[in-house]
Amino acid sequence: MTQPTKDGGLMYPESPSQTAGPYVHIGLALEVAGLPPRDDEIGPTIATTAAEGEPIEIVGTVIDGNGDAVEDILVEAWQADANGVYQTDFRTDRAFRGFGRSAPGENDAGQWSFQSVKPGRVTHPNGGEMAPHINLMLFARGINIHLNTRLHFDDESTANAACPFFNGLPPSRRDTLVARRESDGETARYRFEIHLQGPQETLFFDF
């Protein structure tokens, strides 16, 4: 169960993941389960309209290998603020929170959504600026260990083309990470379809 480390100590194995199951909402998205919310909940508002930056809405569905929407999906999002800084101090009394959770309700046909602001560019450790992106994590019944992906923006093609991260990915699969701007107005809405399998399978990361 343990293996020696370089310094002669013992290293324990990480606790193994298990599926979040069909009732993940009871614990992490109470209203979707039908439970009364507590005073402070982590919800689909990553940033309010009072936060600095361009207000955006992200909507999407997760499609399984049969072509069906995964209606029990729980999506978590983590992003930098409009200046490209990760704000790690999470509190719901702030306009910019950086972290959110979203799950489709009963009548949403599997569609989830987040309210946020367009993230800024984050510096890559090897140099250069990464294109604006949102980190997403997916949890559901039948997903034994959560899936990590990134959402990029189709109206940031210059930033995407110059992004040291994006450009390191297999060219044929980069497009699976790009959300489409589908409406303007006060809050631009982007749609991001995630495919778990098939010819359009979304690129998932191991990190």
Partner: peptide, 30 residues
């Protein structure tokens, strides 16, 4: 799991960035 597991390999990040190495901290979450 049959229809919900990716069929392509996961892509390994050789150089993790701030995007993966940070996360929310709940010290001030009420």
């Amino acid at each position: 799991t049959v229809a919900r597991s990716p069929q392509q390999s996961l892509v390994s990040l050789q150089t993790p960035t701030a995007s993966e190495l940070t996360g929310p901290d709940f010290d001030n979450f009420v």
